[in-house]
Design a protein around this nucleic acid. Structure first.
Lengths: 246, 246
DNA sequence: AATCCCATTTGATCCAGGTCAATTTCAGTC
DNA sequence: GACTGAAATTGACCTGGATCAAATGGGATT
C-alpha cells in the first residue's frame, strides 16, 4: 500500500467499523512512513497533553484509552471527549492546547512530528480530507453531547452514556442485530460523573435505580448487561436508536 | 486573486479578525467562481436545514444570524452553535444533517452545490486545510461550551455568554485594549436559555442580579454596558480572558 | 486469611434552579 | 397619546440533584 491510501474512507474487512479510521489498516499503510512516525507510551494516569502545552505532534491512539477534560481553577472538571484506538489528537499548525489529555489506561500512540505531518498532508490531500471528515464527526458528537449536558435529566444522562458505550462496543464485536447486550464499562463512577456533569453519588444512585427497574443488570461492578436495548434507548430520551436496532 | 488563495489563513487588513475566514475577502476571492456559487436568502424564523435533511450544498453566511439547535420529541431544545457572517454550514460528502439550522434574522448565504465544491477541494488542497482549521476551531469552541453546560452555575453561564458576545463584538469593531464595553445582545431571553441549558425565568433573574451587583447595566432591553470587563471574566469563572485584556 | 485502600453504595439534609402564575415593560400601530 | 401583544420581570413554591457523612464491598498485598 502507498501513502496515498492512508486516508481511505472505509475499511470493509476490519472489525473496527465504527471508528473513522481503522487503526490496524492505518498501521499497515503507515508502514511506508518509517522514520517519520514514532511511538510514545504512557502509563495509566499519566498526562499526555496539558492545557496550554505546545502541540508539536499529531498522534493516533494505537491501544488504551485517554480522556479529554476541561478544568476550572476550583477543580470542577468536565470531560469533553474520549480517545479510543484509532482516534487522533493534536493539531497540525496550532500551538496551544485547549484542554488536558490524560491516559486512563496504559496507552500507546503512533505520532508524527508537526512539520513532517504537514508536509505529508500537503503531498496527499486525501489525508487532509480524511481528517476533515473525522473532525466533523467529532463535532457532531460534541454537539449531540451538548444536548445531553444541557437538557437531559440524571437518569437520561446515564442511559445516554450507556447507549454510547454499548453502541461502540457492539460495533467492535459485531454479531448482527441484537436486542440484548453485555459489555464492560471502562469508567469509574467519578469519570462517568465528569462526563455527564453530575456528582458520583448521583451516578451511583441512578445506576441503582436503573438496576432496580430492570433496565440493566450488573455482573460485578463494571460489567453491564442490557436485556432490552430498545428500552435503554427509550430511557435515554433519544428520538432514534441511530440505526442500532433493526 | 486566484482560487488558490481562498484558504489564506489570516486577513490582516480586514476588521473581522476573529472569524476563521473573512467574509469580505472570501467574497473577492470567490468572484473567480461565478457559475459555481449561488446565493440563497432566508427570512427571520425560516428553517434552513431540518435535522435529517440531505445536505447537498455547502454554504457560508454572508449576512444575518442563524442558530444550530438539537431538539427532543418533548420539545426540550439545546442550541449547539451560532452561525455568523463568514461561518460555514453543510458537509461535503455527508447526507444527513444532525441538527436544525434556523435563521434568526433575515439571512443571505453564499452556497456551492456539493459536487462542484468537492471538485474545488480536490483541486485546491488549501481549501480542505482551511476548512479543517475552521472545523477544529468550532470543535474547541463546542468543547469549551460543554464545560459551561456541565459545570457552571446559572450566574457563571450568563457571564460566560456575555463574555463570548462581547469578545466577538469587540473584534468586529476593534478599538485597542479596553476595559469597558457596550454592545447589543442579539438574542431573546428564551434563546439565551436554550443556549445555556436554563429556563428563561432563570436567565432573567440572573441578568437582574448582575445588574443589581453592578457587573452590567442595561440600556433598553437588548443593549448591554459592561463597565469592567475583568469583573465579567471573573464572574464567568474563566481562568483567563483569552487574551482579551492587556 | 487478615489488612489496607479505594471504589461504591446508601442515607439525610439542603439549595439552586425549575415550575407555575401574575405583572410590568416596551415597540409598534392606529 | 391610547391600544395591543409579545417579551421580560418578579414572586411563591417545589423538586432534582448536590452536599455531607457513614457504611459496605472487593481487589491487592502481606
Amino acid at each position: 500500500m502507498t501513502v496515498d491510501t492512508l486516508a481511505h474512507v472505509s475499511c470493509a474487512d476490519c472489525p473496527i467499523r465504527h471508528r473513522a479510521v481503522c487503526a490496524r489498516c492505518e498501521e499497515d499503510e503507515l508502514a511506508a512512513l518509517d522514520g517519520i512516525k514514532y511511538y510514545r507510551s504512557y502509563e495509566a494516569g499519566q498526562s499526555i497533553i496539558w492545557s496550554g502545552d505546545v502541540m508539536n505532534f499529531v498522534g493516533s491512539v494505537v491501544s488504551g484509552i485517554a480522556t479529554l477534560t476541561q478544568t476550572m481553577e476550583d477543580g470542577r472538571t468536565q470531560m469533553v471527549g474520549l480517545l479510543l484506538p484509532s482516534d487522533f489528537v493534536g493539531r497540525p499548525g496550532r500551538s496551544g492546547a485547549a484542554y488536558n489529555v490524560v491516559a486512563t489506561t496504559d496507552l500507546v500512540m503512533c505520532c508524527f512530528r508537526k512539520k513532517p505531518f504537514e508536509d505529508l498532508m500537503a503531498r496527499t490531500p486525501h489525508i487532509a480530507q480524511r481528517l476533515l471528515e473525522m473532525t466533523l464527526d467529532e463535532l457532531d458528537a460534541a454537539r449531540e453531547w451538548m444536548l445531553v449536558l444541557g437538557r437531559k435529566t440524571a437518569r437520561e444522562k446515564i442511559a445516554s452514556l450507556l447507549t454510547i458505550i454499548a453502541r461502540r462496543d457492539a460495533s467492535l464485536t459485531p454479531q448482527g442485530v441484537v436486542n440484548t447486550l453485555t459489555f464492560d464499562l471502562p469508567l469509574t463512577r467519578e469519570a462517568m460523573a465528569d462526563y455527564l456533569g453530575l456528582t458520583l453519588e448521583t451516578v451511583s444512585r441512578q445506576m441503582s435505580a436503573l438496576k432496580k427497574d430492570g433496565v440493566i443488570t450488573l455482573e460485578g461492578k463494571r460489567r453491564i448487561h442490557v436485556p432490552n436495548m430498545a428500552r435503554l434507548f427509550e430511557e435515554a430520551g433519544d428520538d432514534s436508536d441511530g440505526g442500532f436496532l433493526s
